[in-house]
């Protein structure tokens, strides 16, 4: 089927790479602090997809095994913690500057 049968680790890596790059570009171009945060989530998700792919028994005979899934679980939990902190920072920023545009946070610029 469209040349991807059987599905291999490489195919998952391609999806992960697209997510990663999209997230990185998102972080670079968005001016809304929450948009930047969404870019971070995409990057983390792309990395997670790679862990799952390397740990999957269905994609490779010699797979990483359970460690891939366990690390992916840790990443998901830590991403939730990261989002909580980043959101608190964004709210604080909004309270202090009355805007969510990250380009406005330039007091430290010389």
């Amino acid at each position: 089927m469209i040349g991807i049968s059987p599905v291999s680790v490489s195919h998952y890596l391609v999806v992960g790479a697209v997510l990663f790059v999209t997230g990185a570009v998102c972080m670079a171009t968005k001016r809304n602090a929450l948009g930047v945060l969404m870019g971070v989530e995409l990057v983390i998700n792309g990395a997670n997809l790679n862990f799952i792919a390397f740990g999957s028994k269905y994609l490779r005979v010699e797979s990483l095994g359970l460690d891939g899934q366990l690390i992916a679980l840790f990443v998901i939990v830590l991403a939730a913690a990261e989002a909580a902190v980043a959101l608190a920072i964004a709210l604080n920023f909004y309270n202090n500057h009355a805007t969510i545009d990250v380009d406005q946070a330039s007091e430290l610029k010389g």
Binding site: L49, I52, G55, S56, Y58, G68, Q69
Partner: peptide, 14 residues
């Protein structure tokens, strides 16, 4: 949709 990819890779719990 990426959760769907996880299911496909056999990582139901994740």
């Amino acid at each position: 949709a990426s959760a769907g990819l996880f299911f496909l890779a056999g990582a139901e719990f994740v």
